[in-house]
């Protein structure tokens, strides 16, 4: 009789890395559909190229270095969709391939692959593309507006920063200028509800992030609705700031992380020279996650109250 002798436990839960990533992809479908609806089928092509490039870079890198092939865990595909979501609909396809290279090879694989990246790969790629191809990354196309208002000449945040008026309904539905995944708050919120119901993410980071932005906007006398709906906040808060690898472990840590994101975002938007601040906020907060983790540990059952580390 040949029996397998292994360490307990002998059963495991249903969720796997791939199933979580699949849920993330499903949660991004509404935003994807909204982008096709508002900007046309070119957004679908851009997303497909981005996903293919990310998966291909991961596969080639791992093949070359004779590492186990991990494209099956779908994390590269998620990065691909997120990267495309952070690009304007008219971006030339080769540009997104450059972004995919930075996201997968530089940020993810060179740091050890899934689980070891110090920052969200799609965020860093967006920032690099924004710096390297500023013109391409900020040329917006404009869908027909739901409200029938005059066609805007920039993203709602830019319009608002320049003193223009924006329509709340357009921002909520998504008929505004912007990167392809960020415009429809409605579609993003659908994804958010799905992720929370499926327990893929904890709502803590998105809620504290958005709440902080709204509160600070009120305090600083700017329109909180525009700040919440008018830019990349919801996309960032729901899909990028909640990235497991680069967000804190505990609920306490997640609250601090969310508040930090909100503060940095508002500071950049209100006092910086840029109209958008979500990507930089996430990148900066990603970098301090190890410190947040250390400072926000749970108190184990029966352990003495928070003993300071003896030095």
């Amino acid at each position: 009789m040949k029996l397998l002798v292994s360490s307990a436990p002998h059963i495991t839960g249903k969720d796997s890395t791939a199933s979580l990533m699949r849920d993330l992809i499903i949660a991004m479908v509404p935003a994807m559909a909204a982008s096709v609806f508002f900007f046309g089928v070119q957004t679908l092509i851009l997303t497909a190229v981005s996903v293919l490039a990310c998966v291909a870079f991961e596969y080639l890198y791992e093949k070359m270095l004779k590492k186990p092939i991990t494209v099956g865990d779908l994390s590269a595909a998620v990065t691909g969709i997120l990267l495309a979501f952070n690009c304007p609909p008219t971006l030339p396809l080769w540009t997104v391939v450059v972004g995919a290279f930075f996201a997968i090879i530089i940020v993810k694989q060179l740091f050890g692959g899934l689980g070891y990246n110090f920052a969200n790969p799609a965020i860093v790629a967006r920032i690099i593309l924004g710096l390297g191809y500023t013109g391409l990354m900020t040329s917006w196309t404009f869908p027909a507006t739901v409200s029938g208002d005059a066609v805007a000449s920039a993203t709602p945040l830019a319009v608002y920063a320049a003193g223009g008026t924006v329509n709340y309904l357009d921002m909520f539905v998504g008929s505004t200028g912007g990167v392809l995944g960020e415009t429809s708050a409605l579609a993003l919120l659908l994804g958010f509800v799905y992720l929370v119901v499926r327990k893929v993410i904890s709502p803590t980071i998105p809620v504290t992030y958005v709440a902080t932005v709204a509160v600070l906007a009120v305090v600083l006398g700017v329109d909180p609705v525009v700040y919440v709906l008018g830019g990349g906040l919801l996309l960032g808060a729901i899909f990028m700031a909640t990235d497991y690898v680069t967000s804190p472990y505990t609920e306490k840590g997640k609250i601090i992380f969310g508040i930090g994101l909100g503060v940095i975002t508002v500071m950049i938007r209100r006092f910086g020279s840029m109209t958008e601040g979500v990507s930089y906020a996430i990148l900066l907060m990603n970098l301090v996650v190890p410190y947040i983790n250390k400072a926000t540990r749970q108190k184990p059952l029966g352990a003495p109250k928070a003993v300071k580390e003896a030095k």
């Binding site: 397998l4 495991t12 979580l20 991990t70 692959g113 899934l114 689980g115 690898v245 804190p248 472990y249």
Partner: peptide, 12 residues
Amino acid sequence: TLPDATACIRCA
């Protein structure tokens, strides 16, 4: 038999 282990994704 349990499934093979993959990389930790720090999901906590």
